[in-house]
């Protein structure tokens, strides 16, 4: 019985990262400017959103596909598209404030992807 319990816990621990991956993980955009972080963890686990809150209306399921869109920029956000659908100052903080809470910057981007200063992998 004890062994079974322990096994379940271990299995659960082993599966945790898999579940985290299921929620999409971190997305590091590099267009139109480098270094914008979208964290599924903070939106799904902390804010309690469901997948279908954003997918597929605001964002396609494929990560970073949206950054190929011509209008994926701050102007669109301020007009309520993409992130701006929620980040309007009422539902969530406005997209025109707290710049560096999403913009991790080139520094954050390189750090997250393990690149060195000139953009090559370590």
């Amino acid at each position: 019985m004890k062994k079974l319990l322990l096994g379940t816990i271990l299995l659960g621990l082993a599966l945790m990262p898999a579940f985290a991956d299921d929620s999409g993980g971190d997305i590091h955009y590099d267009k139109p400017v480098i270094g914008v972080l979208f964290s599924h963890a903070s939106h799904v686990e902390e804010a309690g959103l469901d997948c279908d809150n954003c997918h597929d209306d605001l964002f396609p399921m494929e990560a970073r596909a949206v950054q190929e869109e011509q209008d994926f920029n701050m102007l669109a956000l301020s007009e309520g598209r993409y992130c701006g659908a929620c980040h309007d100052g009422e539902m969530a903080f406005a997209s025109s404030t707290r710049c560096a809470s999403c913009h991790e910057g080139a520094i954050g981007f390189r750090r997250a992807l393990g690149l060195n200063d000139s953009g090559d992998r370590h």
């Binding site: 480098i34 710049c99 560096a100 913009h103 910057g105």
Partner: peptide
């Protein structure tokens, strides 16, 4: 300062 997003352009 608060507008800078380190895009490094």
């Amino acid at each position: 300062l608060d507008y800078c997003v380190d895009c490094e352009r």
